[in-house]
Amino acid sequence: MEEKKEVIINREWCKGCGICVAFCPKKVLDLDDEEKACWVNPEKCINCGLCELRCPDVAIELE
């Protein structure tokens, strides 16, 4: 089985629009106190990569 990729969030570039949080099919992302996206449920993540494709700030990367 392929190893699971990590969802890396660039906090400097994230503007907290919440698009990744709202459309994540497994609800693994959330906004923290500073309104930045966070990978809060890594174990549920299916690595679909939709957060990366829909991030307007190019702030999310699967690595």
Partner: peptide, 20 residues
């Protein structure tokens, strides 16, 4: 970067699509 567009602006998504 960070780019100048407003939070949630769709243009960044299109830019990402062009790159890919």
């Amino acid at each position: 970067f960070p780019q100048i567009w407003c939070a949630g602006c769709g243009h960044g998504i299109v830019m990402g699509g062009m790159i890919r």
